[in-house]
Design a binder for these strands. Sequence first.
DNA 1: CCTACCGATCGGTAGG
DNA 2: CCTACCGATCGGTAGG
Lengths: 203, 203
Amino acid sequence: MTQSTNDQLTKGERTRQALLDAGYQQFVLRGFHGASMRAIAQGAGITPGGIYNHFSGKDELFAGVVLAHHPLTRIFPQLIAAQGTRAEERLRNAAHAIVTEMEADEGLLNLFFVEMIECQGAHLALLAETLMPKALAYITEIHGAVGIRPEITPFALLQTFVGTVLATVFTRRFLATGGASSDMLAGSEEFVNVYLHGILLDE
Amino acid sequence: MTQSTNDQLTKGERTRQALLDAGYQQFVLRGFHGASMRAIAQGAGITPGGIYNHFSGKDELFAGVVLAHHPLTRIFPQLIAAQGTRAEERLRNAAHAIVTEMEADEGLLNLFFVEMIECQGAHLALLAETLMPKALAYITEIHGAVGIRPEITPFALLQTFVGTVLATVFTRRFLATGGASSDMLAGSEEFVNVYLHGILLDE
DNA sequence: CCTACCGATCGGTAGG
DNA sequence: CCTACCGATCGGTAGG
């Protein structure tokens, strides 16, 4: 997938990567139960039995896919990495970058859903534990740097930011599927404008 | 499920309802492929073969469940039915009622996800066609009745309203699963405040 | 609507 | 990592 995938890796590591990539594609396309180990093996270029040299079973393979591809592992780092001179601009750029990435690969949102439904969010606690502290520290800094309306806590700021990003991608997806022409759909600019106008004190 | 389920219905109609209810429970718990016809039959109190007297197969049963339970069939009517003297208050009450209903039955959000992933949104076009016109007409009326910021079209107002509701339910769900204490989670009040403040002209 | 059953496919394993 | 295979379970059907 990335350039480094085929460089500097042993044959076993390359096969493991190929299984994670093929598993990702199958799980987000058909769901956990709908994806078969046979199709995943075929996607990775091996026979079904070979999977078990790399993963103890379907559950462990899925856990590996979640760790590698779950959108939360993209959203929080991208939020922190976003550039911009003013704090407001950094939020805007972060949201736009995340929405762009999630619209370029529809599987990202699907993986979020599949994990929540078919695994009851079992992996979310671990992900949150790893990713939340940094994101919350960062958003607390933002919270202090701009004039946020007083009833919005740093945590609520983070929650509504994530909610805005997901709402953008999600509503655009299902309204497009439902037949809406894409030029009338609100994009990340409109959603982020509502969000920023909503959280900021009037000037 | 409702009181009328057991009243004024023939035996066949009662069985059909029991199948729709059992199917709903299984589909939202395990996904489309994870739910077995055997478990659904057992939930409805019949044997597996009996299902095919009411539905031609698993797909048709699922389509019936979507038609009866999809959250969009609740969101749009509740939006229109909400009471309130001012337009702003109607939006606020509608959002609160929808969030309350979707948090009382977690399956509603799950069904949205299951249908999008495992059926690629195949039923959404029909639902949208039926429900959108009235909702859009209603929201256009709202749009004219309050001081909305000029760059927000009626369609964008509807899209961001739905997005706000879904963002509320969705972020609360996965943050709670991820271990956040529920008293720090932003609820529908906070989300709707950000939304309303975001769409309204400064006073 | 039940009994009994079909072929197909599932996740996973043994042995090499 | 492949070949060959296991028992279990799947959606669906025939016949009554």
